[in-house]
Design a protein around this nucleic acid. Structure first.
Lengths: 239, 239
DNA sequence: CGCGGTGTTGAGACCTGTCAAGACGTGTGG
DNA sequence: CCACACGTCTTGACAGGTCTCAACACCGCG
């Protein structure tokens, strides 16, 4: 059940079988939600954290005019609101972009883990810090790149994050967002997303149809996006 | 020395004298840097984390054309790169925007703390999560607001964050950024910052001269920015 | 006193948003 | 099985926000 999480942790450091079973013991329950479900609401008091098993989550905030900004995407194996363990209340919503399956870890159990397993605690802490690194990169993306590069960057990031959990097939992947949702990620209108998509297609960089994304020219797309995956911290720290 | 950090922690939860002295024991050394110093370099291997005592830091990344994006500002009492404790290497630079004074906490000591003081560990973890919440808000700011609101939001955030550490004087505060640096924060050119500043001044919302910012109309500025400070987590979690 | 960084202003170009309309696809109900 | 409705994708024309380039004023500092 938590194999995807373990896969991600083991990219970076060893996790003994004993530790793995402690982690397994965190989770009480598996749930499903439909696409569009608002699984966590901004401001709601929380007593558990959610591990995404299948599907895509978005962290999102809506402004007063109803415009949505998607702050970060969560993919299978992501501990979607581990930060609620320390914060207890979130400043954003968590929304299911597709049908999803998740496992819930009561904060009580995470707290017990922090009392007895400092190494695992540091590993969980690190997960939230990597999350923040992704968030910083989104800030950079919105602040300094224009539409084509922003979109290219989103595609590069999605590919690499799915690749490490073995959810890519060759150069292609399931990319379930509508153009409107892509716009919500990148701070632009769906109409402009459409035009920029045409442009990336026209340059022969990607194909995207029926929610299936194929990256035709990886180096070209990465160059356009100035994509550098070190912020994903996918390698063991070198000594 | 770490009184500002304690002040911030004590907004949210109690810190016993014994715990305070454990925290004090984290720090080995106080250092100074001049404005403009790049204190931490992206990719550099780190074995200590820096607590900012006085002055302003920026987390920043430069793109290939040399444009800088400031990802987040760090103010006195901020543990500027506590996330390097788990990450060991950062994805961004840390730059001194003013003369600064900082205290360094060797990672060895933080690690020792995590082995023996789970409650303090959770408090430090929480600090990094609040940091991430600020980062999310910057992402929202860049993605969904236009120039006037972005700038107003930056001013509101700076005021509130300085207020809790008692570095505001009435409605005004020292705001040491140049217009170019403000632009680096907000993803816009210095020229446009200038024009938008004129506009905020013209509406009677703020004054800014000689690095001194005065907020003339708090509600007006907050309304323009759609500023909601809950993301700063400045209150004790209610039960 | 002169210099470099900072702030200010104007004109034109470019990127992106807005509004409007229509095409396509899929699921639902008759 | 078809008709329809709805969400999504696509395209065009125009407006608005922000950038670029250029020039100049101001200020603190050596």
């Amino acid at each position: 059940m938590i194999e995807t999480l373990l896969k991600r942790l083991r990219l970076r450091e060893t996790v003994s079988d004993a530790e793995a079973s402690v982690l397994r013991g965190l989770f009480s329950e598996v749930r499903r939600h439909d696409a569009g479900a608002r699984v966590v609401r901004r401001g709601q008091k929380l007593d558990e954290s959610l591990l995404l098993l299948d599907g895509w989550f978005a962290r999102a905030r809506d402004d007063l005019k109803g415009n949505r900004q998607i702050l970060e995407l969560q993919l299978p194996g992501d501990f979607a609101d581990l930060h609620s363990f320390t914060l207890k209340t979130l400043d954003h919503d968590i929304v299911a972009l597709t049908q999803i399956r998740l496992a819930a870890a009561p904060h009580e159990r995470i707290k017990a883990l922090t009392e007895t397993h400092p190494r695992l605690t540091r590993m969980l802490w690190k997960l939230t810090n990597i999350d923040a690194a992704i968030q910083r990169t989104w800030t950079l993306n919105l602040g300094r790149r224009q539409a084509e590069a922003r979109l290219a960057h989103l595609f590069c990031e999605s590919f690499v994050r799915l690749e490490v959990i073995e959810r890519t097939q060759g150069n292609s992947l399931d990319f379930p967002l509508t153009q409107a949702q892509i716009g919500d990620c990148l701070g632009m209108t769906a109409i402009h997303v459409n035009r920029v998509l045409q442009s990336l297609r026209g340059r022969g960089l990607i194909e995207l149809e029926r929610k299936r994304l194929t990256i035709l020219d990886h180096p070209g797309l990465a160059a356009l996006a100035e994509f550098d995956p070190t912020y994903l911290y996918l390698r063991k720290p070198q000594r």
